[in-house]
Nucleic acid binder design. Structure first.
Length: 510
RNA sequence: GCCCCCAUCGUCUAGAGGACCAGGACUCAGGCCUUUCAAGCCUGCAACAGGGGUUCGAAUCCCCUUGGGGGUACCA
């Protein structure tokens, strides 16, 4: 559905810095960004670091790098500031304390002096009795005298929200419609913890209001707590932002929410963290394209599209409410497609860091390496990920004596014997000595001509030579490979391969 | 257990009562091409979870069942 009248939205991506960014988070950020760009609004990055125990200092960096990698830029955030700074919740502590007090004053919250120990044993008891677990609202009914006595004793306390005892709370989710929950099923959630920091329930509601957030996109795991949020917002007398709960991304096995751990399913490894996808050599454009189509659909007939097209068509109310597993094979296909769409020069730039890491050569060295200029155009259509590049070109960075012909099958084609292969290698070598211009097309022409003179199929001639120069049975197109190596090195390898086969033949005949 | 959400090919999805004996894509299988491997092109396999309603008519609306998921913390 197209609605051109959407006014500028203010959306926020509000991760908690507790570890590496994973694809589910990235997808949420992507949809946020898409909506902000679509409506000409603002995309805000807010850090929800109110859990001191789980805080991981490394994660901020991971987060920011992940978002930038995908090309998502924010208009307000901890690093660039903005009209509602600070954008880090631990720096907004006083605000939450004030707001919590305000709720107490209005009779919507109360101090709770129950110890974690009492809560735990309460839970145990409830569980044992087969009853539902939850806070028994013990402190909700404390008299003023009792309360001030405990305060005077210096007993530490939290602030809890006072959920209405009866009635029904109705809230609206953009993709699911109205959802209603009876208040008696709700808990008096903690708003402010004993350490003075707020819980999500308070902090997010306060900040969304203060920062004038219009649309809240978050994972489906928040759906169950949405009525509490509605109640809190109502208690403040604020307006509820539009709620959009994004479907959870399922584990590759289809069972359960995707975790941050690499997952092994049927012996295949599935990635989950953004930086892992980056390391594997997925292109940001491909990832953008891919992720946009999980939970939303660009077009039923068109799988490939640009960022601009996605922005133009994206619409929140078309989001699919059902959970989905990532179609990993489709990602590989798309990535291959985007790789093929690169210019060879751009592919070289993208590939060099991977090659450098895997081949142990410096990036500078590789960047000016001529072999790559010959090889990249021919391996381009063979790559699905950038980390596969090294497998295609590593043989070219070996010296001739480092090529190990461990298996004669490499040099002997199907339905051939060693003697025939030797003959083919010799014929090839002779041709390469002769050919004037060491150029792929010219060599190929000469080879084809010779094959037909010899009365053999082209493959019979090419196969042993492929094995000789690459040491592999699968390698880039032959003649470009020769050009990359140069005449001298090519002859060197063919010579060594010939000697290897001759050695075997002699052994056999002894 | 209780609360909430969801339900179309193996997977990602299109489908907002008749245009659907359900469309696209990936995967898979077969074929063409071919210098190995790819890429490309063509063909094929493959789904409305089940049962009741409503309606002249249901993948589409309602109910139940089943299945899956999420939540049930001084975590977010």
């Amino acid at each position: 559905m197209k609605k051109d009248g959407d006014s500028p939205a203010r959306v926020r991506f509000a991760p908690s810095p507790t570890g590496h960014l994973h694809l589910g988070g990235l997808r949420t950020a992507l949809f946020d960004w898409l909506w902000a760009r679509k409506t000409g609004g603002q995309f805000i990055l807010r850090i929800e670091d109110t859990d001191r125990r789980r805080f991981d200092p490394e994660s901020m960096d991971s987060l920011i790098r992940g978002l930038r990698w995908l090309g998502l830029d924010w208009d307000e955030g901890p690093d660039i500031g903005g009209p509602f700074a600070p954008y880090v919740q631990s720096q907004r502590q006083e605000i939450y304390q004030e707001k919590a007090q305000e709720l107490i004053d209005r009779g919507h919250a109360y101090r709770c002096f129950c110890t974690p120990e009492r809560l735990a044993s309460l839970r145990d008891e409830q569980r044992r009795a087969g009853r539902r677990t939850g806070y028994d609202r013990h402190c909700r009914t404390l008299s003023d005298a009792e309360r001030s006595q405990r305060e005077a004793e210096g007993i530490s306390s939290v602030i809890r929200f006072a959920v209405p005892l009866d009635g029904v709370t109705v809230y609206h989710d953009l993709v699911r419609g109205d959802i209603q929950v009876e208040n008696r099923h709700l808990q008096d959630e903690i708003l402010l913890k004993a350490d003075g920091l707020p819980t999500y329930h308070l902090a997010a509601m306060v900040d969304d209001n203060l920062m004038k957030i219009t649309h809240v996109l978050r994972g489906e795991e928040w759906l169950a707590t949405a009525p509490i949020h509605k109640l809190i917002v109502d208690a403040f007398g604020w307006e509820m932002p539009v709620l959009v709960h994004l479907p959870v991304i399922l584990d590759p096995s289809g069972k359960g929410k995707m975790s941050k751990r690499k997952k092994l399913v049927a012996g295949k490894e599935f990635l989950a963290l953004v930086h892992e996808f980056q390391d594997a050599g997925y292109l940001p454009d491909a990832m953008f394209n891919f992720l946009t189509n999980v939970g939303w659909n660009f077009d039923p007939e068109e799988e490939v599209f640009s960022r601009e097209e996605a922005i133009e068509r994206f619409c929140l109310d078309e989001i699919n409410p059902s959970a989905a597993a990532l179609p990993y094979e489709k990602l590989d296909w798309l990535n291959g497609l985007y790789i093929r769409g690169l210019t060879p020069a751009a592919l070289k730039v993208a590939l060099v860091p991977y090659l450098s890491r895997q081949l142990g050569l410096s990036e500078a060295e590789l960047q000016k390496d001529r072999k790559l200029d010959v090889l990249i155009p021919v391996i381009q259509e063979r790559l699905k990920r950038l980390d596969e590049g090294a497998d295609w070109v590593d043989w070219a960075y070996l010296t001739s004596d480092e090529i190990a012909y461990s298996d004669p099958k490499l040099l002997i084609g199907r339905k051939m014997d060693a003697a025939q292969s030797i003959a083919m290698l010799r014929a090839g070598a002779a041709l390469l000595e002769e050919v004037e211009l060491f150029d792929a097309d010219a060599i190929q022409e000469a080879f084809r001509e010779r094959a037909s003179e010899l009365g053999v199929k082209a493959g019979n001639l090419f196969g042993p030579i492929r094995g000789a120069i690459s040491g592999k049975k699968v390698s880039p197109p032959l003649f470009e490979s020769m050009v990359a190596l140069g005449r001298h090195e090519t002859l060197q390898r063919i010579g060594r391969a010939t000697a290897y086969l001759e050695g075997l033949t002699i052994e056999e005949s002894v």
